[in-house]
Amino acid sequence: MHETLTDYNFAYLDEQTKRMIRRGLLKAVAVPGLQIPFGGREMPLPYGWGTGGIQVTAAVIGPDDVLKVIDQGADDTTNAVSIRAFFAKTAGVATTEVTTEATLIQTRHRIPETALTSGQILIYQVPIPEPLRFIEPRETETRKMHALSEYGVMHVKLYEDIAQFGQIATSYAYPVLVNGRYVMDPSPIPKFDNPKMHQNPALQLFGAGREKRLYAVPPYTDVVSLDFEDHPFEVQSWDSPCGLCGSTDSFLDEVVMDDAGTRLFICSDTDYCRIQRERADG
């Protein structure tokens, strides 16, 4: 009787797949902001749940890495918990909720408030990687537009916002120009986080599982949000500080507290909020 394999390969993916993804990531790093196709695999969760981000993490993670996973800034949501558990099981790596302790951070829709350092890798989950898709449905055409820097339509979108709303209404997935060359969709992070991408010491990797695209922003790369001279890029602000820690410089979520509609604004980044509270306590 022969033995059947009962264990997963390290980090779930087979070595050939990891090699393929790493090659794609190297290309992506070499051409900041350009979308690189990759042979996305079937993962044990459906499209739309972070399969791209998971494949990128699986390709770069090593046994000595410390993994943090956040979903909308929180470590304790269902998805973040599940993905963290997935890698704990298939790679046996240490995990953490503390940003400064992590070497790899997989994120859905936020950049941590705590500044990242050289040597850290931030891995974004991306639904639709193509910033031009809103206006041009043809892949053949969008590839040409990127190749020829035909980005007039991106500003048309911002123009339309101003014409309709008096200001640029795009508040997340706000398009950016990377390294002065490619226009990129930064994934559905709030525009509040866009400035963090600029000249960040960490490596930023992006994975879209359903669309099968990778892209990257190497450390210390220029990332500039698109705008008009007379309507410059602005980040969101709130009237009140975080209700838990008092922070005035973090992204706040609005939470409805009771049936009477009482609202509380609290930091979306749970780790950051905890640090602020601890500092306040003593």
Partner: peptide, 25 residues
């Protein structure tokens, strides 16, 4: 572009060659 306003349709070429002032466009 049928789903872009008349103004956006006219302004597109200008934005495509680098026009960056909303008021002027």
């Amino acid at each position: 572009r049928l789903r872009i306003s008349a103004g956006g349709n006219i302004g597109e070429r200008l934005m495509g060659v680098g026009a960056r002032h909303y008021g002027d466009i």
